[in-house]
């Protein structure tokens, strides 16, 4: 797609793109290339000795039990966040689409968690779940569950998943509701006349027609769980207990800023970049398909 009518100037277009390109070069391309370069080097924390080691940092990472564990934790975390988040939001969106009055009121009541910072979401939930003073551990104790996410790694994972899902509900809900409202009523009415009940209609008509939205949200939620949950993890568990909630992004930060293992942190950054690029490609292929419809 191109404009037929254009302006002419030798210098103006360059001046117009200059600010964006300057920032992009200084803060995106230069650091990214530094990460690539450093990932091939072995440095001590004070920068006094540097040695070129080729792919040794990567080989080392994939032999490192801690890194592989962090990979598994990230996969479990994002599957749980995407799975629970999508199911819960879809349920609410279907209900909101079903009711005649008040759908907009419910939308207003459900969209504001989007505005809450991930780090704040983490703080709200650790307050609720605090083993010493939280209200939820008190209720849980009454039904025989002893809650202490500072010691129990499964409970720590549950806590960060809940906080991450809570923050993402609004986003998923909005997209599901928009998707549901764009399904032609006549299809559903026809099925109802043929005698299909609400459950049958949902699974044979609504759910399949909603699949583009679901797939899109699945990718978005995985990206979210991978990268945007740093604040939740840092404020709620700091990756602990042990390493049980140290997702990949958190590990880059820990190894780079706390452990000062520059080569390893850079190699981890490069692996994360590869993951983002992969996910972006998937997303764009999907969008191209949507355009053809």
């Amino acid at each position: 797609m191109e404009k037929r009518v254009v302006f002419r100037s030798r210098w103006l277009p360059y001046a117009l793109v200059a600010p964006q390109l300057a920032i992009t070069t200084a803060f995106f391309f230069w650091p990214a290339s530094q990460a690539l370069f450093q990932s091939l080097l072995l440095q001590d924390p004070f920068g006094t000795s540097v040695q070129f080691v080729g792919l040794e940092n990567f080989a080392h990472l994939f032999r490192d039990e801690g890194y592989l564990a962090s990979f598994r934790i990230t996969v479990v975390f994002s599957v749980l966040v995407a799975g629970i988040g999508l199911s819960f939001s879809l349920l609410l969106a279907v209900m909101a689409d079903h009711i005649v009055r008040g759908a907009l009121v419910f939308r207003t009541l459900l969209i504001w968690p989007y505005a809450v910072a991930p780090a704040i979401a983490g703080v709200l939930w650790i307050f609720l779940f605090s083993p010493a003073i939280g209200i939820l551990p008190y209720w849980l104790a009454k039904i025989g569950i002893h809650w202490n996410h500072l010691l129990d790694s499964r409970q720590a994972m549950t806590l960060v998943v809940i906080a991450a899902v809570w923050k993402q509900v609004s986003y998923n809900f909005l997209f599901f509701l928009a998707g549901l409202q764009s399904i032609p009523r006549s299809l559903i009415e026809a099925a109802a006349i043929d005698g299909a009940g609400p459950m049958r209609r949902f699974w044979t008509i609504v759910f399949p027609l909603l699949s583009p939205t679901t797939f899109f949200l699945l990718v978005v939620n995985i990206v979210y769980a991978f990268f945007d949950t740093f604040g939740i993890i840092d404020s709620a568990t700091q990756g602990g207990p042990g390493q049980s909630t140290t997702v990949l992004v958190y590990k880059v930060f820990q190894d780079g800023f706390k452990g000062l293992d520059l080569g390893s942190s850079a190699a981890q950054s490069v692996i994360l970049m590869a993951i983002v690029i992969g996910l972006t490609v998937v997303q764009f292929r999907y969008i191209e398909r949507k355009v053809q419809y």
């Binding site: 803060f27 650091p31 450093q38 992004v249 800023f257 850079a266 970049m273």
Partner: peptide
């Protein structure tokens, strides 16, 4: 230039923490 801007989509802060900090 268009592609240069486009590619930044794939480089969130989280994946280039240390080098950006150094800049």
């Amino acid at each position: 230039f268009f592609w240069m801007i486009f590619v930044t989509l794939m480089l969130p802060v989280e994946v280039r923490i240390l080098p950006t900090y150094e800049v």
